[in-house]
Design a protein around this nucleic acid. Structure first.
Lengths: 279, 279
DNA sequence: ATCACTTACGGGTGACGTAAAAATC
DNA sequence: GATTTTTACGTCACCCGTAAGTGAT
């Protein structure tokens, strides 16, 4: 069998055209390459190069070998990459969610329960997340409803409730609860990474505008120093510290202001994520 | 990059199940394999095996690697085979013919003109020979007619004439020529490897039977010691020595008893076989 | 003189074998 | 005790680099 290092050197020579250049590319010396190319010829027992005393070039057999070698090297790279990513997938849990709230609850328990595993999470649309679960990009996903698919395991998780967040000077500040309808038409400051909540508020308050903030820092400043209403949830209030910004949280009383989350994973992986699902 | 020898050893282990067995298969010692498998794990930086103190087995990453390794090794074998057969095709001329006669004339000149090249020849049906030319199995073929194909170069070659061969006691022995029709119904001894001539005589003498002999030796004995008629051609008479078997050759006068041969090769190879085509 | 390749020589890594130990059946 | 794997140690091969040589531009 021809060893890979010889094929690598041949591939470099085929790409560079001269041994000197190839040697530089490979961080080696020319004599080494000369010997390697001779070794290839010795192995096959017939010439792979035309020798012009000055210039070395591949003959037709050599060109053919170089083509194959190039493909073979690509295959080996691909092999290594696949094995590495397979191993990675065994030792990382990527969680996809349609909202950040449940991740705030789930991630700390995850890192505690699987200290040897890398935890990653993403907020995306429901469609993208379900696709990601089926393609094993995600190990567990969080949806606002159960999945009726024989390949999937669904389990009820926490629920999250949306609040109106207003300054104490706001007319609604004293209310014990409020409806979307009452707030429709007013303009809101909103965090951009809220996932499904954006769909909810846009649907329930079609006359309102929502000024989305990319950073938490910007959101915090704006809610502290402006009178514009904003949103919180019971989950975010419990998990985000330093929320003492002179505002009050008033629950929306509409049914759509409460979302019950469901953990979903492939049936074949239920054993693997047992502890997490039971949390 | 992972060297091939490591993948070979992994592949053997995956096939055998134990290091000892794999070592035997590879004509090596177990400790060598132990080290090689450790080397693979070191390279990847994560385990590829489950170690059971007694038994070593592939874990899921190892299985994946072994699968890829197996394919890669097959690719390398294929690469080597293709390069070798490419080189071979450059240094061998395989001539296909629909009859042995023209080969008797052509082969001696070939070996003289291309002493460094291996010459091979086959007699087969026209269909098989044309296919063989197109697939580069043959470099040059001999047909009984020109080819009207823009990819192919055709060139007239020698002609060959069929004789009746009978003992001096045969009623026709004194004839200067004879027709197929006159001989139809008589039974003949015939060499089996005559290619297109078999089609000719069967078509022209449908009432006759032909006793085909696989070996020249058998044919020679039968023609010498039996009275059954047989065939020769002007070409075979000129090229096969020791033909003094008390028989006389009487030319068939029918037009179909003469075949003009044509040399055909791919246009791209006319330069390569120039000398031969000009002979 | 420079460039490109080849040849010659020397060194250090590493691939392999032998020997022996550990562990399981 | 037999089998399988692992560890330890010595050796030889071979892969690479340095230095020198050849031929062409």
């Amino acid at each position: 069998m021809i060893e890979i290092y010889l094929l690598e050197q041949l591939d470099a020579f085929a790409a560079c055209g001269t041994l000197s250049e190839a040697a530089e590319k490979l961080h080696m010396t020319q004599p080494t390459l000369t010997r390697s190319m001779q070794k290839l010829e010795d192995y096959f027992g017939f010439p792979l190069f035309d020798r012009d005393k000055k210039r070395l070039s591949l003959n037709s057999s050599g060109k053919l070998l170089a083509e194959y070698a190039h493909k073979l090297l690509a295959s080996e790279k691909e092999m290594e990459h696949h094995v590495r990513s397979h191993h990675r997938s065994l030792h990382t849990l990527h969680i996809g969610s349609i909202a950040p709230g449940p991740l705030m609850v789930l991630l700390p328990t995850c890192t505690a329960q699987y200290p040897e595993i890398t935890i990653a999470s993403s907020v995306d649309t429901e469609k993208a997340i379900i696709q990601g679960l089926l393609s094993d990009e995600y190990g567990v996903i969080i949806l606002p409803h159960p999945m009726d698919d024989p390949r999937l395991h669904t389990q009820a998780y926490i629920s999250e409730h949306l609040n109106l967040s207003v300054s104490v000077m706001h007319p609604a500040a004293a209310r014990k609860s409020i409806t979307f309808r009452e707030m429709d038409g007013q303009n809101f400051i909103m965090f951009s990474q809220v996932g499904i909540w954006e769909d909810v508020v846009k649907a329930e308050m079609p006359a309102s505008s929502f000024y989305k903030q990319e950073s938490m820092e910007a959101l915090k400043n704006l809610t502290t120093y402006s009178e514009l209403p904003s949103f919180t949830t019971d989950v975010s209030v419990a998990h985000v510290s330093n929320w003492s910004n002179g505002r009050v949280n008033i629950p929306f009383s509409d049914p759509s202001a409460t979302i019950r989350y469901y953990l979903v994973c492939k049936k074949e992986n239920t054993a693997k994520w047992k502890q997490l699902l039971e949390s």
